[in-house]
């Protein structure tokens, strides 16, 4: 196990202890530690090592982006749902994926569904082509923006702009 994995396991451990604290408070921290260690070892057993990692200090920016976009998405879809004319134009577009496998790609696929007008519908088996279902205009731009944001979050590019 290399240092990066160890570090990740450590972070998971800390997070799990935090979860324990949320659930149980300070009453029986020892049990919590045991539980967290079991959980973390499960993580170690299951996880696949990757050469990149999340840059924590870039997280707030991404979270903000995500929150704003998903609220926009929700409002957009609510507007369409309540609109008497049902203004939706279903379309299917294919979009290239540049992000590496693992967390970044997962993040892309899941978050896309929360952005305005887009829904990740299928990812081919080598993960290079994403089918996006759209009910509004310009889905391309949204996907591209998100890709850039994620890449930036993982330190793959230097700027959050596409």
């Amino acid at each position: 196990m290399n240092r990066l994995s160890l570090l990740r396991a450590g972070i998971v451990l800390v997070l799990l202890v935090l979860v324990w604290l949320i659930l149980d408070g300070l009453d029986s921290l020892l049990t919590g530690l045991v539980a967290a260690v079991i959980g973390a070892s499960l993580f170690v057993l299951l996880h696949v090592p990757r050469p990149y990692h999340l840059r924590i200090w870039r997280l707030p920016r991404f979270v903000l982006f995500f929150l704003v976009e998903s609220v926009r998405g929700a409002v957009d879809v609510a507007w369409r749902a309540f609109h008497p004319a049902l203004p939706i134009v279903p379309a299917m577009i294919d979009h290239g994926v540049e992000l590496p496998a693992g967390q970044p790609r997962m993040l892309l696929v899941s978050v896309i569904s929360l952005l305005p007008g887009t829904l990740s519908a299928d990812l081919d088996s080598d993960g290079k082509m994403l089918k996006v279902h759209a009910i509004s205009e310009d889905p391309d731009i949204a996907v591209r923006t998100l890709q850039a944001q994620i890449a930036y979050l993982y330190g793959l590019i230097g700027t959050p702009r596409p």
Binding site: L23, L42, L46, G102, M106, S110
Partner: peptide, 21 residues
Amino acid sequence: TPLLTPLVVTLAPLTMVVAIY
């Protein structure tokens, strides 16, 4: 789908902790 591995990796430890809790 590439989603599953990260999903499992995230859920499993958490489930374990919640179960023990």
